[in-house]
Amino acid sequence: MSSWPAIILVVFLLSSIVLVSSSRLVHCIQLVALQGVLLGIMPLIFWDWQSSPPHGELVFLAIVNIAIKGIALPMLLILAMRRAQVRRELEPLVGYALSQLIAMLIIAGCFAGYRHLIGGTTANSAMLAIPVAASTMLIGLFVIIARRKAITQVIGFLVFENGIAVFASGLMVHHGAIVELGILLDVFALVFIMGIAVFKISREFQHIDADRLNTLRDRRDHENTAPPAGFTAE
């Protein structure tokens, strides 16, 4: 009986809280990378080592996970960030301290909801994955809602996706390696496209504030709302 699964999950949860409070994009991306690595090693840690060594599929999945979520995607994001020349999320729609409090509320809500779901029985620490996954997903969605920059929204999406992945690895659904790989590929493609989109947007508009993309809508009023020439996101 070890407490490593719980520790990993809690570190995972903490990284989402820190992510919500960080204004530096590099920092956020590093945290997402950390989450990716944690996700990669999670199935191995959850494995019952006493009974048998983990089978090859699991190890392969862990390596692919770390490679894609821990290394490839973050690098892609950093590249997009460099291209778009943004380093900070300066004016979030929801302030950082308030975001932390909301994240806290989300976590408390998920734990309480989970408690409600399982009734009075005491849960074992591997089941911790469920509320952690749920709250990570919600925090990811919250990041998408509460931040302006397109790149932060990509980060939010990744956090959301990580939450889904925690469900899978936490509950040891290890028959679905193919499914898992498929999802990974999907996410990779999506982030790739988003990265390119971020770059294109920043080149076209000199900013990547997603909330101002409404100037693209049909009504021809964007002459009034378009940013002045020379305006940069910094």
Binding site: V10, L13, L14, I17, V18, S21, Q100, L101, A103, M104, I107, A108
Partner: peptide, 8 residues
């Protein structure tokens, strides 16, 4: 953040 940690 540390308040959040303690509440967790």
């Amino acid at each position: 953040g540390s308040l959040a940690a303690v509440l967790t």
